[in-house]
Design a protein around this nucleic acid. Sequence first.
DNA 1: CTAGGGTTAG
Length: 386
Amino acid sequence: MTSWHISVDSSQNLNRQAHPKKPSSVSVLQLNGSKEEGQLGDGSFEFLLRKGKFMLDSIVEQPLHSLNDFFDSNKLMLLEADIFSLLKALAHSGNWERALLFFEWVVLNLKSSNVKIDNQVVELMVRILGRESQHSIASKLLNVIPLEDYSLDVRAYTTILHVYSHTGKYKRAISVFERMKETGLSPTLVTYKVMLDVYGKMGRSWDKILGLLDEMRSNGLKFDEFICSTVISACGREGLLNEAKESFAKLKSQGYVPGTVTYNAMLQVFGKARIYSEALSILKEMEDNNCPADSVTCNELVAAYVRAGFYKEGATLIETMMCKGVMPNAVTYTTMINAYGKAGKEDQALKLFDKMKESRCVPNVCAYNAVLRMLGKKSRSEDFVT
DNA sequence: CTAGGGTTAG
């Protein structure tokens, strides 16, 4: 099972010669609970399991700041351990920070003995940070892990690309994506989705986006809601109206049935460009296709109304939303408050802000900023009391 | 229960 094993010191080899039938690595925690390898008979395996559990518990008990000292003083035992299982157990018990510190410690100690970490351990660490959405930490970690030394799987690569996308390192994402393909790995639908997002956020890359879509087609991948919404929102970001319309039509002609998210992205494209006829026809298409509207749909419509100066209509829409069971959220209220503020309707804005709190919608930073900016502009900050 | 999408921001 665990074919990889890191041998670091000679004492371990002596140990192995003395007991050649023992498992070659200490299984720290038997997560799946399977009774494998028939090693339970002589009791030594159980002992090793207990030892592993003990190691896990000891790490979890350590305060974060003294963890490195703990690792150093238990160096021999830890480097002999099944690092993969120990990492997995740490992450599984909600200790991703300890997992990270352990990983970094292992990297440091193995580097000094010129031993490479196993691919699977790197993949696991990437996955742990990805799941925790620790993008900037992952990004920093990737600066010290030479990726070209490892042959990671597609999923690890995809997570890494997502990390680069999320931390704005678009150029690096593109070069890692290219290198990944050179090593013979085939990108999955999700990989392509992340890359479409990278080009979309980087901007000025519409031809690249079309290129990726062609590549996907020739690899036999089917476009889904994720792919389509990403492409349309890329258009929205740069005001590519015709491109949005064309690709939307093309995708539909290929049998793709748009969902709420893609319709929302289309609404944003036309709403932002103030082309209300098109926005309304999108809305009509949604209704015709029985595609349910959600809070984002309503927020886009509210934004479209107030951009055109239709404050009453925007406010009424919020009421309608509530009647239909779609609760307005912080985005809805912030959009309206901003609009009132710009129009010099401070009283209306403050009334709405109160209503927001009454309806138990917790104001976020954007909402407070909208109110404060408005009051600051009017030099009426004395009216603002919590 | 392996990775992934859309909305506020003067």
